[in-house]
């Protein structure tokens, strides 16, 4: 592998972005990990119910959402690469692109929810839907939170708020968005596929 796009002379000791966000990325990953394991444990005592209702899910929509989030995450990587070269306008365009893919995710997910709610599914229907709705809605809210952050960063980038020497804000927003993507990468196979 030849040298990557940008070369670091000395490797930094802390991750990109503000350390405060990384405290919360770890906390969020912990919460989601606990929720995933509790989902897997709860599934053990009625596997038929979980498998049955898993079929009710729209796996294609889940696939689409995964592809959307991965692409959106990629756009954010390009945004960070752009700001590191001082390209503030290109950075903010990449960020808005990532933001719009986030919106697309919300649309697809919203459609799924609309479908479920119209069938009378609620948190109280049964164990599977309790976990399905809790996990996906909790992630859904994180996508909204991530989009709020991306929008704020994109606006500031548009106004030239960042430069080659100072763009921690972009990296902070990027790290949070990658966490939201990472969580979905595990949630999709766990809830939609594994049976």
């Amino acid at each position: 592998m030849n040298s990557t796009a940008t070369v670091y002379d000395t490797q930094p000791k802390s991750p990109p972005g503000d350390l405060a966000i990384w405290v919360f990325i770890l906390a969020e990953l912990l919460v989601f990990a606990v929720l995933f394991v509790v989902y897997a444990m709860a599934r053990r005592n009625n596997i038929e119910l979980f498998n049955l209702h898993q079929l009710q899910l729209d796996r294609a929509a889940g696939l689409a959402n995964t592809l959307v989030l991965i692409t959106s995450s990629y756009f954010v990587v390009r945004a960070v690469a752009a700001i590191r070269e001082g390209e503030t306008q290109r950075c903010s365009r990449w960020l808005w692109a990532a933001f719009s893919l986030g919106a697309l995710f919300l649309l697809i997910k919203g459609a799924e929810y609309q479908h479920h709610f119209s069938m009378g599914v609620t948190l109280r229907s049964n164990d599977f839907y309790l976990f399905y709705l809790s996990l996906t809605f909790f992630h859904f809210m994180h996508v909204i939170m991530g989009m709020v952050i991306l929008a704020a960063v994109a606006l500031k980038a548009q106004r030239g708020g960042y430069s080659v020497s100072e763009h921690t804000g972009v990296e902070t927003g990027a790290s949070y968005w990658h966490m939201v993507d990472l969580v979905w990468l595990i949630l999709f196979p766990l809830v939609y596929v594994m049976h």
């Binding site: 906390a27 912990l30 919460v31 606990v34 929720l35 509790v38 948190l123 109280r124 309790l130 976990f131 809790s134």
Partner: peptide
């Protein structure tokens, strides 16, 4: 109260010592 609180209450109060 509905039983989903048993999941949500347990998970988040388990993190309250942090």
């Amino acid at each position: 109260a509905p039983e989903y609180w048993q999941l949500i209450g347990s998970v988040f109060s388990a993190l309250e010592p942090i």
